[in-house]
Amino acid sequence: MAIAFRKQVDADTEIALWRIEEDADTLYHKLQLNEQEKAYVDQLANGKRHLHWLGTRVLLRTMLDTTNYIDCRIDTHGKPYLYDMPYHISLSHSFDYAAVMISKSRPVGIDIEQIKQKVERIAPKFLRHEEQAAIDADNKIAHLYVCWCAKEAIYKCYGQKEVSFLDNIALERFPFTAEGSLQAHLHKGELHIDYKVDFLQYEDYMIGYVKA
């Protein structure tokens, strides 16, 4: 399958989704991997985790439109980066989809989640009381997923560990729509960063994405 959805965010930033319909062997043969990457893939049990790793890399290769080897590494905080290409990247996946965001100028973060009822049970673990109070009762589950995806996207964009969704990332009140944006703030010690997070619903998935 080719790219299922693609959006140009600005002149040098875009996001895309890949619906993973291929088997692992088909995805594997779309990639160039070094020996370390091959060994890592061999360690992954066949299943969604295997397909997700391959799917995000196939999508990244497709977006970068290159036949050269892509040296995609993971830093000490778990953030993926390209060693010898001038792009910031962020990767995500959920069930049947892989998602990638790339930018030539600034750090980025993207998160995709399939919309499920379970998010309501964990909402108090990632939303403050005032954030929970702002949720649209008529669209509660989808609205909660916007909040989760926004905080996850910010976490990935910031790119360092030891950030609490509950204590360090605050969302301003925003109305629920199928596509829109919200204002958010990351506070940690002396650090204060403001973000504008975009979001959209695609089929039964929610996507949040942000550029620093």
Rank of each mutant, 00 (worst) to 15 (best):
A184N: 05
I89G: 01
I154P: 01
I102Y: 05
A178R: 00
D12Q: 11
L144Y: 09
Y209R: 08
I193M: 13
A24Q: 06
H29K: 06
L31S: 02
C72Y: 07
K156V: 09
C147N: 14
T66K: 03
T62P: 00
W148Q: 02
Y28C: 02
Y155N: 01
R19A: 09
A39K: 13
A134I: 07
L60I: 02
G78L: 00
V100C: 10
K125A: 12
L64H: 06
A24I: 08
A39H: 14
L59A: 08
F199V: 10
W53Q: 05
Q43L: 10
I74Q: 09
A123L: 06
E190P: 01
N34V: 05
L60V: 03
K38N: 14
A24Y: 10
T67M: 01
K38C: 13
A133S: 07
R19Q: 13
D204S: 13
A142T: 11
D71N: 12
G159P: 07
L166Q: 10
Q43M: 06
A178Q: 04
G189W: 12
E190G: 12
W148S: 01
F176T: 06
Y97D: 07
N46P: 00
K211G: 08
D84C: 05
D96A: 11
N68Y: 13
A45W: 09
K156L: 06
K211M: 11
